[in-house]
Amino acid sequence: MPGLEDLYREIILDHYRNPRNRGELPSPPAYRVEGFNPLCGDEIVVYLDVSEDGRVVDLRISGQGCSISQSSASMMSSAVKGKTVDEARSLIRAFKAMMSIHEQRLDADGQPEDAVIEEPGVKLGDLEALQGVVKFPVRIKCATLSWNTLQQGLDEADQAAPSPA
């Protein structure tokens, strides 16, 4: 049976107690996206400043939630700040793979298949501390809340950006 030490690693508690990049950004120009976990009432707001050359130049988190969702958001903010949108997207995929989230995609015959999409080149660093969450299935949604919200923000940024000629 997994124990608490698998879940509440010291670095997670640190990010929970001292969340990084908390606050808001004026929106617009920043993208403001809300995420919601109906199970536990967690709410997260991600503010994203994406530069014209497709870089996440600033990012802020507000909202409230449990230690897992809050620390995951905090670590995410540190990991993503300064990265390009593409790098941020591979980080999201790598994080979800670590959370064993199965993405539906079409296989060669056009049939939907469930697969964990690995991102071999991506370093998760501190975020690996969240791996223990996988042993507590009901908490996975807490860990992924901010990541799904970020993804939505990146999608909005992409849609708004002038498509490359």
């Binding site: 124990g3 608490l4 879940l7 536990c40 967690d42 939630g65 449990c66 230690s67 897992i68 507590f136 908490r139 807490c142």
Partner: peptide, 11 residues
């Protein structure tokens, strides 16, 4: 958060 409370209580 109540989730954290009940998780630790469960231990």
């Amino acid at each position: 958060h109540p989730h954290d409370v009940s998780q630790v209580l469960d231990e």
